[in-house]
Computed example of a mutant assay.
Amino acid sequence: MPELDLTATSADLTRAVCDIPSVSGDEASLADAIEAAVARYPHLEVTRDGDTLVARTDTGKAQRVVIAGHIDTVPINGNVPTRNIEQDGEPYIWGRGTVDMKSGLAVQLKLAAELVDPRVDLTWMWYDHEEVDAASNGLNRLSQNRPDLFVGDFAILGEPSNGQVEGGCNGTLRAVVRTHGVRAHSARSWIGENAIHAAAPVLARLAEYRPRDVAVEGLVYREGLNAVRIGGGVAGNVVPDLCEVEVNYRFAPNHTVAQAADHVRNVFEGFEVEITDAAAGARPGLDAPLAQEFLAAVGAEPRPKYGWTDVARFSALGIPAVNYGPGDALLAHHDEERVPIAQIEAVEQGLRAWLSPR
């Protein structure tokens, strides 16, 4: 079993965790290594649920902060093992997972071992299956199996945010818009009705759609409505009787899933619309006292998170949550995924400055 040295630098630890492959569904080796590493520290109470690890301090502090991150990655494409590179004179670590989100994971592991008596009690959560469907998400499973662990006054998710603080997140909704027709031989197309042709107004409405900018608690979230898939047709000589356009709606966190669904149905009024998947967003929660202390300690100007992240799970439980981690989200899942070492160190220093006893 590979071993992790939690006394190593956060950069070296980033390379170590990235070099243990953990594509979604194959996280056991990394989970085993994390469990063995944190079990050496008596100040941590360690719980395992599948390939999700939880490590808690219990010092009797009045407040508790949850700090979480996922241990899985998207598939590897020749970018493991990692290597050190230089770009514009700045040192980087290159390879799968360096951005999303094993550099953040490395910082968390190092601080979990180091902070024996933090200023607040800490619950560290490192979970599996984040990069796949929500039903498999380790954090979701843990919340069902061990809801008692989801107690906290504030939460931080180590998703890549360029070392800045990104509050809350947009919600996301997927829907299928269908048009129907009548099959016929394409040589006698006037006998039938072409369902693909009937979808032209659906695409026109999408092309004409203007996304809204929505202010929520001082942050401005940009929405979006886009076609992400289109399908129809049964053979090269048959007029199709069905066409499906799948759309994805990213909506501001002041809207409920029901409101988002109503909006999509209104946009495509007159067409058959099936909502196939949806997840609510998360309000920024930056007015919480702990959030204000955190922002002051790391010296960050909060920004909105446009993508959906697991901060929404904490928000739904009434725990204010933010995204804070090294790495540029634009490079997440990219074959040239890479993270500046200085950013890893800055996030480590920011968290340590906030969490260390005063």
Score class of each variant (00 low, 15 high):
residue 303 R to A: 13
residue 221 Y to C: 04
residue 284 P to I: 06
residue 332 A to I: 09
residue 192 G to A: 06
residue 157 L to Q: 08
residue 35 E to P: 00
residue 338 R to Q: 13
residue 288 A to G: 09
residue 293 E to T: 06
residue 22 S to N: 10
residue 74 V to C: 05
residue 172 T to G: 11
residue 83 R to T: 14
residue 12 D to S: 14
residue 87 Q to M: 15
residue 67 I to P: 00
residue 206 L to R: 08
residue 280 A to P: 08
residue 286 L to S: 02
residue 42 P to C: 12
residue 167 G to L: 09
residue 317 L to E: 09
residue 158 G to K: 03
residue 3 E to R: 09
residue 262 D to F: 07
residue 163 G to R: 02
residue 259 Q to P: 00
residue 170 N to V: 10
residue 72 D to V: 06
residue 287 D to W: 01
residue 179 T to G: 10
residue 179 T to P: 04
residue 333 H to L: 11
residue 293 E to V: 02
residue 53 L to C: 04
residue 254 N to I: 04
residue 129 H to R: 12
residue 218 G to D: 13
residue 105 L to A: 07
residue 35 E to I: 04
residue 260 A to H: 00
residue 305 K to I: 03
residue 161 S to V: 01
residue 183 R to A: 15
residue 306 Y to G: 13
residue 331 L to H: 06
residue 79 N to F: 07
residue 358 R to T: 13
residue 184 A to D: 07
residue 260 A to L: 02
residue 46 V to E: 01
residue 91 P to A: 14
residue 324 Y to F: 14
residue 348 E to V: 04
residue 157 L to N: 12
residue 300 A to P: 02
residue 99 V to P: 00
residue 153 D to H: 11
residue 110 K to A: 15
residue 52 T to Q: 10
residue 253 P to Q: 07
residue 18 C to V: 09
residue 226 N to P: 04
residue 192 G to D: 07
residue 321 A to Q: 05
residue 29 S to Y: 01
residue 324 Y to L: 03
residue 204 A to I: 05
residue 138 G to C: 10
residue 153 D to M: 05
residue 225 L to Y: 08
residue 241 D to Q: 07
residue 245 V to S: 05
residue 333 H to S: 03
residue 185 H to K: 03
residue 156 I to H: 01
residue 340 P to Q: 11
residue 237 N to G: 03
residue 23 V to W: 07
residue 264 V to Q: 08
residue 116 V to R: 14
residue 162 N to I: 01
residue 290 L to I: 14
residue 163 G to V: 10
residue 85 I to Y: 10
residue 89 G to K: 09
residue 108 Q to W: 12
residue 77 N to L: 15
residue 185 H to Y: 12
residue 346 A to T: 13
residue 102 K to T: 05
residue 240 P to K: 00
residue 46 V to F: 06
residue 225 L to W: 11
residue 165 V to A: 01
residue 44 L to A: 10
residue 326 P to K: 05
residue 153 D to G: 04
residue 92 Y to W: 15
residue 75 P to M: 06
residue 177 V to H: 08
residue 309 T to I: 08
residue 227 A to H: 08
residue 123 T to F: 06
residue 357 P to L: 11
residue 73 T to P: 00
residue 54 V to W: 03
residue 5 D to T: 08
residue 178 R to E: 15
residue 42 P to Y: 09
residue 179 T to F: 07
residue 147 P to V: 10
residue 78 G to E: 14
residue 281 G to L: 06
residue 352 R to G: 00
residue 45 E to M: 12
residue 232 G to R: 08
residue 23 V to A: 06
residue 109 L to F: 12
residue 217 E to G: 08
residue 100 D to E: 13
residue 300 A to S: 15
residue 196 I to M: 09
residue 46 V to H: 01
residue 106 A to P: 03
residue 136 S to Y: 14
residue 283 R to C: 06
residue 236 G to M: 02
residue 217 E to V: 03
residue 346 A to Q: 14
residue 189 S to H: 09
residue 58 D to H: 10
residue 160 P to F: 12
residue 20 I to T: 02
residue 247 V to C: 09
residue 222 R to H: 15
residue 318 G to T: 07
residue 204 A to Q: 15
residue 82 T to A: 15
residue 2 P to Y: 04
residue 208 E to W: 02
residue 235 A to P: 13
residue 1 M to I: 02
residue 123 T to R: 00
residue 352 R to V: 00
residue 13 L to V: 11
residue 344 I to M: 14
residue 93 I to V: 15
residue 99 V to L: 11
residue 6 L to I: 11
residue 71 I to G: 08
residue 4 L to S: 02
